[in-house]
Amino acid sequence: MQLSTRHLLGIKNLTREDISLILSTAEQFKEVLQRPVKKVPSLRDVTIVNLFYENSTRTRFSFELAEKRLSADTINFAASSSSAAKGETLLDTVNNILSMKVDMVVMRHSASGAPHFLSQHIPAAIINAGDGINEHPTQALLDAFSIKEKTGSLEGRKVAIIGDIMHSRVAQSNIYLLNKMGAKVTVCGPPTLIPKYISEALGVMVNYNLKETLEWCDVANVLRIQLERQNQVLFSSLREYSLAYGINRQLLDSLHKEIVIMHPGPINRGVELDSDVADSKQSIILQQVENGVAVRMAVLYLLANRNN
């Protein structure tokens, strides 16, 4: 049993079997994380660099913890405190790091396609930890793992992705994954934040009405409004966004069923989610974070020795 790919660049080029293998392996790693000794020796001779050209708390910690739980050696790179600030190119930086015998690269970059570019020039296995507005594959995998854990299966599950679809790599990776695994997807948000041809291009349904969307879905994956990725103003104000697309207790209670609430973090409390929703028992936001470590362990484990 092995993955069909040497790198994890995106969900787009994974097969259904790859996704199933990652999710089932992650289940075993989740068990590891419940033990008195939460660590296995699997990657004890593997060195991994975490290359973060863009800020991150959750994803970087999660990867680092996953690497440590697998006994890998890790080094961390943050663009702001490195020679990248002196003008070194991405490829030069990575080649210099690899010459110190590094086996795997976990990479986040603000440019879409940066890890794909790198994969054509270096021998190490690359794991995309988010590239621009393209993909964030490990987030989609941990979301899928959490949905499966909470509701039993992905097949036929109705998932709504709500918010800034246009600038969201989380949305794109989630859509690829849910489609491949037989779930149904509706995207919901203001028309200015939903790409015009998304339903033809990615095979999802579009609904601009939040209440209708919530009434339809089993799971609502609520995205953060990404102010840092918007060059122009696409909605009038955060307050207006919150009035039309924010999820609050009153709205959830008015539905005819109980849905599961997810969020990839960090939450803008009071904008896309109110605190009494984010912290309620319907929310699995913290389980997502917990599952993230197990899922990333599975990805690292399955890609670790594909270069020999």
Partner: peptide, 17 residues
């Protein structure tokens, strides 16, 4: 599975613990 000493030669999918 996660404790094998031939892990660099071959990846095996884990069984249930």
């Amino acid at each position: 599975t996660f404790y094998r000493d031939d892990i660099r030669k071959e990846i095996l999918a884990p069984d249930t613990m």
